[in-house]
């Protein structure tokens, strides 16, 4: 049951990305290019998304389990560390270079565009680099300078 809903929610998410313009890299550039002719549309995506999601989270927080009786995996991390800062800056750099973030990457790949598929593969590789670094760290102790 939860597998079907996951698919449905992914579909709704993707339709939202398409309708909002987030799935169009040219539109994302229009938003990020504040020194050019600025297109503030994507700020409205954030307003609509946060507006609705915050209602959902408001109700979710008052529950002990999901509607299907599953545990609620609310993020517990509270501390602002170097990983968060460095990671978010690297992410912003990549986002600014291509105008694609992970959700839209999947949608663009789903249109069958080869460029979308290539971006997704590179993104998976970037994620795999993170996983390998984490494994290495777990094995050899906290030597990486990325972790506080």
């Amino acid at each position: 049951m939860n597998i079907f809903f996951s698919w449905l929610v992914g579909l709704i998410f993707g339709l939202g990305l398409i309708i909002s313009g987030m799935a169009n890299p040219a539109k994302v550039f229009g938003f990020l290019d504040i020194a050019g002719v600025w297109d503030p549309s994507l700020a409205f995506v954030m307003v609509g998304g946060i507006g609705v999601a915050s209602i959902g989270f408001f109700f979710a927080r008052r529950r002990t389990q999901s509607w299907l009786g599953l545990p609620l995996h609310m993020p517990a991390a509270r501390d602002i560390d170097r990983r968060l800062i460095v990671g978010s800056v690297l992410f912003g750099l990549g986002w600014g270079l291509a105008g694609i973030c992970p959700g839209p990457a999947m949608v663009v790949a789903g249109t069958g565009a080869l460029k979308g598929g290539v971006f997704v593969l590179a993104m998976l590789l970037g994620m795999a680099v993170f996983e390998l670094a984490e494994l290495r760290q777990a094995k050899f102790g906290a030597k990486s300078d990325v972790t506080e």
Partner: peptide
């Protein structure tokens, strides 16, 4: 279009937590 699309994204995020207990 941005607002409506954004609301769909927000709906998806709310549903994934309320139904599956996961962050979208």
């Amino acid at each position: 279009a941005a607002l409506i699309g954004g609301m769909l994204i927000g709906t998806a995020a709310a549903l994934l937590m309320l139904i599956n207990g996961r962050i979208a």
